[in-house]
Design a protein around this nucleic acid. Structure first.
Length: 420
RNA sequence: GGAGAGGUGUCCGAGCGGUUUAAGGUGCACGCCUGGAACGCGUGUAUGGAUGAAAAUCCAUCGGGAGUUCGAAUCUCCCCCUCUCCGCCA
């Protein structure tokens, strides 16, 4: 969320960002509401000031009767104006939730992903001198996944990991958590996976993207689409000390996504699923530092792929591909040899004060003793399904055995997944 | 699910219709005192909003919302949250 004041004082920038993100929003109407709001406030506040003065006269007695008559009429006027003000305020507050975050000046401008900019590539595409198999065929052969049983349980696109597949998944999660905790100094949290509506409102998932989440009507709660949602809200409605910044959290969670509107796309196996596991990095930082931290956080996520020795590239998202809440975002895409394309395994975003405003997350400056909103950032570090695709495919041998990367061997206690 | 207790400023805690512009304490900051410190004394100490170049002035805020009243932290209703006990349950 942007503040009304900020919007009023940066109309051009806000207008530009709305256009750059391809968002439909009537800014002129909002500014008109704001003008009306300020007019009413001035009127009603002078009445209230008057009310306070007369109230004091009544309590210090003499002329009580006359003053009560005056108070009656003032109170009537105040009540009328307050209703008018509340009406306009609720319109404004609702509209504000639909204003997208501003776009950082370093973000490439473009309507969609075709304008994304490749920032760097790491490693190189593995080469094979035999016909390679895809992750589905490999996991079927080694009984790592059982989509058939899963569909009986939950329908399509819910993975059921079995035997060494399940252990592999668990190992990946632990490996990633351990790496971020030990090498990047994140502190681990394990959060609720079902949240009330205020949490996704903070992060920007609500109100605009309600249909992307699983909703539990009976309790008016949501299954989290990412650990970003609960973790970002750890510090909602509070003022942190500047000394406490940066706050760095790493959280494993399952992620639940309805993926409405994406049917028919990436339907094979693990490429797009309704439930997946992810290790998420979240930081609360001083506003001056957030763009440096974004680069750090990106490197933290990249470390995982480097340790797994998987080829990947980093992409800076164009304005039109940028999410509603983000000011800037990098995607990390891992190479899938069989799909013959890059698969998104991480998004690392700087939200600046956008989420902090929605969640009321502030810090008190040491120097000025004033409070200001923190900046929030997060990034997947990483999501497992497409990572698993890349791992199975890149590490397959001609006899279909799958080698286990060195860093995962202590977790899995085997060097290879062998045909039985 | 049932019964009860409670939600007040950084924190603790009083107030239960108009001397509350929220007592008192605590924490914090600054000043005085001191060789330096503690003690003591003094001053200040929130958030949001409106006007304003600024200084400042004003308005709102005692979990949230609605109501009663000339006037609500205080009375009424609805909701949320925390705690205790009971029931159910992994």
């Amino acid at each position: 969320m942007l503040s009304l004041k900020y919007i009023r004082e940066n109309i051009d920038l806000v207008k530009k960002s709305i256009a750059a993100k391809n968002v439909d929003f009537d800014l002129a109407k909002l500014l008109e509401y704001d003008k009306k709001r300020r007019d009413i406030i001035q009127e009603v506040e002078s009445l209230k000031a008057n009310r306070n003065i007369i109230n004091k006269k009544i309590s210090s007695s003499n002329n009580v009767k006359d003053n009560i008559d005056i108070m009656r009429s003032i109170s009537k006027d105040i009540k009328k104006l307050d209703i008018e003000l509340n009406t306009i305020l609720s319109k404004i507050n609702n509209d504000l939730l639909y204003v997208p975050n501003i776009v950082d000046s370093s973000v490439p401008i473009g309507v969609d992903e075709s304008s994304n900019v490749i920032v760097r590539e790491w490693g190189k595409k593995p080469e094979f001198d035999f016909d390679i198999k895809g992750h589905l065929e490999l996991s079927e052969k080694h009984r790592l996944l059982d989509f058939k049983s899963a569909s009986k349980i939950s329908g399509s696109a819910f993975p059921l990991y079995t035997q060494i597949g399940a252990k592999y998944e668990r190992s990946l999660i632990n490996f990633m958590l351990d790496t971020h905790i030990a090498e990047h100094a994140y502190s681990e949290v394990l959060t609720p996976f079902i949240v009330s509506s205020s949490a996704p409102r903070t992060t920007g998932n609500l109100p605009k993207f309600k249909d992307d989440m699983y909703y539990i009507e009976l309790d008016d709660m949501y299954c989290i689409p990412t650990a970003e949602v609960p973790v970002t809200n750890i510090h909602s409605k509070s003022i942190l000390n500047e000394d406490e910044l940066p706050k760095k959290y790493v959280a494993y969670s399952p992620c639940f996504r309805r993926e409405a509107g994406s049917y028919g796309k990436d339907t094979k196996g693990l490429l797009r699923v309704h439930q997946f596991n992810k290790v998420e990095l979240v930081q609360f930082v001083h506003p001056d530092k957030s763009y440096d931290v974004l680069e750090d956080l990106l490197l933290n996520a990249e470390t995982i792929l480097q340790k797994l020795n998987l080829h990947y590239r980093v992409v800076s998202l164009a304005s039109g591909d940028l999410s509603f809440s983000a000011a800037k975002c990098y995607d990390i895409e891992v190479w899938s040899p069989f799909e013959n394309k890059y698969l998104e395994v991480s998004s690392c975003s700087n939200f600046e004060s956008f989420q902090a405003r929605r969640g009321d997350i502030k810090f008190r400056s040491n120097k000025t003793n004033k409070v200001d909103f923190v900046h929030t950032l997060n990034g997947s570090g990483l999501a497992t399904p497409r990572l698993m695709v890349a791992l199975l495919e890149a590490y397959q041998k001609e006899n279909s055995d799958i080698e286990i990367p060195g860093v995962l061997r202590p977790y899995l206690n085997v060097n290879k997944i062998k045909s039985k």
